[in-house]
Design a protein around this nucleic acid. Structure first.
Lengths: 244, 244
DNA sequence: TAGTGGTCTAGACCACCCT
DNA sequence: GGGTGGTCTAGACCACTAC
């Protein structure tokens, strides 16, 4: 594998090493070559290698022992695919070993409710777009998502929206903006009648409810998301590592 | 403020800048001094300052604009205190503006169930300790936690365990080990009878259920946790930032 | 003692934003 | 053009672990 510039060395080294780990070129539990060796092999500085390994260690992909070495986490594959490792429910489903599919339930332009206007920092009665979609794993519905965003951000007509795009692509393509972070509020709820048809759950069955606000780099709320998540079919897993 | 060695420069700079941000010495939305200025003021290299700011940017505490500057996130306070920012339910409660308290419900030594033995990588029928505790916010119970761990790890008698200690302290003090990361599985459930007395919720009320496995640096599972979380009283918030 | 990761520096050069 | 963050280097020294 040859390093090519441009496109950040860190990103390239990152991609190469991540691939080696996930492909088991470096076996789970095995010790990686030392930082200096990797630097030499990839023809970058040790600092660059360290930047990547530090990132991996934060993600939990590897762990390091001073005076000993850097080891591949046995749970590497699992950790590479938890909630929060991507914006994209499709990827989450895929990473859990299922075939994802998306169907668009509805696409409407409505006046914003007071609450939505507040959350999106809009003038009252601004028009907002509602997209309701259903994510399925192996054709079993697992997540019902409603996304809400100001019509004013759109750079095309509502009916031209491609409902199969992941949320960050919608922002990139139709808003000409970029997502920076999400704040998710996680709640529990009971399946309601209107969800019954879509998630195929009897009324009263417990579901997870995720209330998400997606922000741009300059902290403008761009999109709201309200999702109903069937955790019995798809695990909602978090990985947290210790930070001082 | 004077920098003192030893104890990593990065940690010290981290603490100083975090304090300034949370104390609003740097106002929300305001631009920080440039990296070079901070380096000069704190008498460290720009690299050290960058390490800290990169960490902050990952946490979402600040955001950076190339060619412009580094800005304090307006949601800094909120972001500094989400689920996953600490191991410690008490701190989570405190950060949400309540006074936390813990009561120990029970402390038992039992033979491990098959499932627990598997999860903890133990021989069947090993003895495990169960600690049931209740975390309250302003005297309202909000989280009911059962922690399970092998008796063999304990370096003292069961009845000497201090039930007020946070989980990572228990590991440090009684196991002579250190927690590295947690995998949490988030589910929804309905309040059951035995929880009614503790969380003061009528039967059938939806609660969050967190199933956590705490690992050491060498990936040994040390402790299991099963928690029932009343999200109506205490928000379970996650913050995720974009990573390539 | 040799080799590993952990910390830190000083400085180069680039890409980008503002005025 | 001047200042900011983004990237990258080469190298020093320390702390720790294994042998």
């Amino acid at each position: 594998m040859q390093i090519q510039r441009p496109s950040s060395l860190v990103d390239q080294v990152s991609a190469i090493l991540r691939k080696r780990i996930l492909d088991h070129d470096y076996q789970p539990g095995q010790r990686l070559p030392s930082e200096s060796e990797l630097a030499k092999e990839l023809k970058v500085s040790r600092t660059t290698v360290r930047t990547v390994l530090t990132k991996f260690a934060n993600e939990g992909l590897v762990f390091r022992k001073q005076g000993d070495g850097t080891y591949v986490n046995k749970q590497a594959k699992e950790i590479d695919n938890h909630y929060g490792s991507s914006w994209d429910f499709s990827k989450l489903i895929e990473g859990n070993g299922y075939t994802p599919s998306i169907s668009t339930i509805s696409l409407d332009s409505l006046p914003a409710t007071e609450e939505d206007a507040t959350l999106l920092e809009l003038a009252p009665d601004s028009e907002v777009i509602h997209i309701k979609r259903l994510f399925s794993a192996d054709d079993e519905p697992v997540i019902h998502v409603t996304n809400i965003f100001p019509k004013s951000l759109l750079n095309l007509e509502v009916d031209q929206i491609d409902g199969n795009l992941p949320i960050y692509k919608i922002v990139e393509n139709y808003f000409n903006q970029e997502l920076a972070y999400v704040v998710s509020d996680i709640q529990a709820t009971l399946a309601e009648k209107n969800l019954k048809q879509t998630l195929f759950r009897e009324e009263g069955f417990p579901l997870l409810k995720l209330i998400e606000t997606f922000y741009s780099h300059d902290h403008k709320p761009l999109i709201l998301g309200v999702s109903y998540y069937d955790f019995t079919k798809l695990k909602l897993k978090l990985v947290q590592s210790w930070k001082k």
